[in-house]
Design a protein around this nucleic acid. Structure first.
Length: 372
DNA sequence: AACTTGCACAACCGCCATTCT
DNA sequence: AAGAATGGCGGTTGTGCAAGT
């Protein structure tokens, strides 16, 4: 037999909490604790609330030492870096910010921080893409490929690029520093320019795509590299990225978790030159991080969803498709951030005591690179 | 002054892993 | 061991307020 239902949903009050309800709940918990059973708690104290609602109210609002609003620049940096590294794992991020709740951080991210970062990116792109035919920044944001990617993966890539671009501000105005494009990408741009100023897409510059074995200079707007991802994790764990990560980070195991991954025979180096990866085989994961949600997304897109182009022009579509397929064939050189990671490598929902954010040097790169 | 729009935040919903009977 | 409750989490929605028209 199981247990009795947690609450009678028909007789449960919803909506904002009154000061009286808050006072009742707070007084009881401060005196008696939760008793290890949130479901039974509201009945004990005469509140017509669901136990889950009581728990949420306590954790997010009534609990002592909760801070609301007024996020500092340092907190902004921490949130950004952790979001880029681990995605929307708000409970983990919140654990690194004393007094902050996951709900608070989630709201702050969704309403302010994300806009702040992506807004800057949009503004910057206005300058960069003006010379290659994009009519306005909306063209850049409204790219027709993005629906094929998970929003989280795309968003994190965009933000990562934004951070990189802010670290190299002079690159914006110097087209010579822009990455060399794959020939098909160049072809695509030329085609777009010839087609009555059709929208130009983020990807054209987001993915410089070198041929295997060929060095290609990438001075700007490179996707997150193996090195940068390693740096992210090294900062977080104060260790080299390795199998130690799974024991030092203690990420929550879940079927819908997020984690960065790296794949590819050709990985960009710190200097921006692509070199073949030595083994060419054992590249499916780093630190137990599962491969390739993006790969799956791209495959899916190319195999099943090519009808999704917004362009009305057949030639235009074919050029785009050729380019995408070519990029896909060079996918081993891609490094991406996925939405899934190895659930076997994760063990709990807390960061260990060696943590993480206490490291003095941890965010200095980002702090030097940008002011949020 | 009235209405609309956008923003920030609180709360709810649904899913999943764990715990309990 | 099976099945149901519980706890926890992330995504989404609802609401109140402020700014803009």
């Amino acid at each position: 037999m199981g247990r009795a239902p947690c609450c009678d949903k028909a007789n449960v009050k919803k909506g904002p909490w009154s000061p009286e309800e808050d006072a009742t709940l707070k007084a009881y918990i401060e005196q008696n604790g939760t008793g290890g059973n949130w479901i039974a708690l509201p009945q004990k104290i005469g509140l017509k609330r669901c136990g889950k609602s009581c728990r949420l109210r306590w954790l997010n609002y009534l609990r002592p030492n909760i801070k609301h609003g007024g996020f500092s620049e340092e907190e902004d940096n921490i949130i950004c870096s952790l979001y880029i590294s681990i995605g929307s794992r708000w409970s983990i991020i919140a654990a690194q910010l004393p007094g902050r709740t996951d709900n608070d951080i989630k709201n702050y991210w969704n309403t302010r921080l994300k806009k702040k970062l992506l807004g800057r990116r949009k503004e910057s792109n206005m300058n960069r893409f003006a010379s290659i035919g994009a009519k306005d920044a909306n063209d850049l944001e409204d790219n027709s490929y993005s629906p094929a990617l998970s929003s989280s993966a795309l968003e994190r890539l965009q933000i990562h690029m934004q951070l990189q671009s802010l670290q190299k501000p002079l690159s914006y105005n110097n087209t010579a520093l822009w990455p060399k494009l794959h020939p098909l990408q160049e072809k695509m741009i030329q085609s777009l320019q010839s087609l009555n100023g059709s929208p130009t897409h983020l990807w054209q510059h987001a993915f410089p795509s070198p041929q295997p074995g060929q060095g290609q200079k990438v001075d700007f707007y490179e996707p997150p590299t193996a090195a940068t991802i390693q740096e992210d994790f090294a900062r977080i764990s104060n260790k080299r990225v390795s199998h130690e990560v799974e024991s030092s980070l203690h990420i929550v195991p879940s079927s819908h978790n997020s984690m960065a991954f790296v794949t590819g025979n050709n990985i960009p180096t710190d200097s921006g030159t692509f070199v073949p990866k030595a083994d060419g085989i054992e590249h499916e994961s780093i630190a137990g991080i599962e491969v390739s949600a993006f790969q799956a997304e791209l495959d899916d897109f190319l195999n099943n969803r090519t009808g999704g182009f917004v362009s009305q022009d057949q030639d235009h579509q074919m050029v785009e498709l050729d380019c995408l397929k070519e990029m896909n064939s060079s996918k081993d050189s891609m490094i991406w951030w996925s939405n899934d990671f190895d659930t076997n490598s994760a063990t709990s929902n807390s960061w260990d005591s060696t943590s993480v954010i206490q490291s003095e040097k941890m965010f200095q790169d980002y702090e030097l690179g940008y002011n949020l």
